[in-house]
C-alpha cells in the first residue's frame, strides 16, 4: 500500500495514526467491486497499437482489457505500448503485444485479496470478473487507495455536515436576540431512558460548535438533574435548555414533592435515595454537588409539597461561543 498517498490527503493527514488500523479493517470489509473502475475502455485483438496509443492518451489510462467476442483474452498496458514504440510498429495489431498470462480477480473478493495479488505478481492492474468469467471492471492499486479513502471519509462526513450546518445557525438567522430552546419531559421512574435528554443536549451543543469541555459540563449537569427527576419526583418533570451564542440556560422543573431542607440537600453525601436506587449506582448524595461544580450559576428553589425549580447557567467566552461559525 502506497502509504504516502494515504497521508497526503487533507482529511487523512488530520487523523491520528489509529486510522491505519481502520485502513486494515477496510481492506477486509470492502469488496473489489466497490472500489474497481466499472465499464472500463476495452480494445479487441484486431485494434492497432496506434489506436491503443490514442485511447490511452485521450482517456488518460495506462492499460485496457482485450476482448474477443465479449471474452477476455488479454490485457494491453503502457509497457506493451512502449515495446511497440521502440520498434516503430504502431500499425501492428494488439494481439501481438498484449499479455495473455492473465491474473483476474472475482468481484466479491475482499480488497485484501487483490492487494496480495498485486504484491505477489507485480502486475499494475487486474481485470475484475464475475463468476462466469465475464469482464466487469478493472482494478488498480490507485482504485484501492481512493476506495478506502472514500469509505473513511464517509464515516466522518455525515456528522461533519450536520455540525457544519448547525454551527452557523445563529449567524444565518437575524434577530436582536436569537436562542434555541430544547424541551424534554422526563418520566418518573424511567431508569431505562434516564440520560437520553442530556445525551441529546450534549450532541446538539457539539453540533452547534461548542467545545468538548462545554458540552461535557452541560452534559454532566443535565444528566444529574435528569436522574433527580426520575428518582425523586412524584410525576417526573421538564427540562428546558435555552442555547444562545454566549450562554446556555437550563431550567429543570417538577411539581413535587419539593425539598424540605435545601441547605441539607446541597451537602455532599446527603441523600434521601432508597437502597434500590443506591444499588443502581445513584443516590450517593453527590448529584447537586456535581451540578454546582459544572455550571457557572445555580439557583435551587423549592416549596415542600409543591415542587422544585433548578436554574442553571453556563457562560461562554468568545472562543467557546456556539452557533456562530468559527
Amino acid at each position: 500500500m502506497p502509504q504516502d498517498t494515504l497521508f497526503k490527503g487533507k482529511l487523512v493527514s488530520e487523523q491520528k495514526a489509529e486510522d491505519i488500523t481502520r485502513v486494515e479493517e477496510l481492506a477486509y470489509e470492502l469488496k473489489v467491486e466497490e472500489v474497481m473502475t466499472a465499464n472500463p475502455s476495452t480494445v479487441t485483438p484486431e485494434t492497432t497499437m496506434g489506436d491503443v496509443l490514442v485511447l490511452f492518451r485521450q482517456t488518460r489510462i495506462s492499460g485496457a482489457p482485450v476482448l474477443e467476442n465479449g471474452h477476455l483474452v488479454g490485457l494491453v498496458s503502457i509497457e506493451d505500448l512502449l515495446r511497440c514504440l521502440q520498434k516503430s510498429d504502431l500499425e501492428s495489431e494488439t494481439r501481438h503485444y498484449m499479455s495473455t498470462k492473465l491474473l483476474t480477480i472475482k468481484k466479491n473478493e475482499p480488497v485484501i485479496e487483490a492487494l496480495k495479488l498485486f504484491v505477489s505478481s507485480h502486475y499494475g492492474r487486474l481485470p475484475v470478473v464475475d463468476d462466469d468469467g465475464n469482464l466487469l471492471g478493472i482494478l488498480t492499486k490507485g482504485d484501492i487507495t481512493s476506495g478506502i479513502l472514500q469509505a473513511m471519509q464517509h464515516d466522518y462526513q455525515e456528522e461533519e455536515v450536520r455540525r457544519y450546518r448547525a454551527s452557523h445557525l445563529f449567524e444565518d438567522i437575524e434577530s436582536d436576540r436569537s436562542s434555541l430552546i430544547l424541551r424534554y419531559s422526563i418520566k418518573q421512574g424511567d431508569f431505562t431512558h434516564g440520560g437520553s435528554a442530556s445525551s441529546a443536549i450534549k450532541r446538539a451543543l457539539l453540533r452547534l460548535g461548542a467545545t468538548p469541555q462545554i458540552a461535557r459540563r452541560v452534559g454532566i449537569a443535565v444528566y444529574e438533574a435528569e436522574m433527580n427527576l426520575i428518582i425523586h419526583t412524584t410525576h417526573g418533570g421538564l427540562i428546558r435548555c435555552e442555547i444562545e451564542p454566549k450562554q446556555i440556560s437550563i431550567n429543570i422543573t417538577d411539581d413535587g414533592p419539593g425539598i424540605q431542607d435545601i441547605a441539607l440537600a446541597l451537602k455532599p453525601g446527603y441523600s434521601t435515595a432508597s437502597d434500590t436506587v443506591r444499588e443502581l449506582g445513584f443516590g450517593a448524595g453527590m448529584g447537586l454537588v456535581n451540578i454546582q461544580r459544572c455550571v457557572d450559576s445555580m439557583r435551587l428553589e423549592s416549596v415542600f409539597g409543591q415542587g422544585t425549580i433548578l436554574r442553571l447557567k453556563i457562560f461562554l467566552s468568545q472562543e467557546d461561543s456556539v452557533g456562530e461559525g468559527s
Binding site: 431508569f191 431505562t192 437520553s196 442530556s198 445525551s199 450534549k202 452534559g219 436522574m227 443502581l280 449506582g281
Partner: peptide, 12 residues
C-alpha cells in the same frame, strides 16, 4: 444498567 453507558457518554 443503561446508565453506565449514559454516564460514560457524558464523561467521555
Amino acid at each position: 444498567n443503561p446508565q453506565v453507558v449514559r454516564t460514560s457518554i457524558m464523561a467521555d
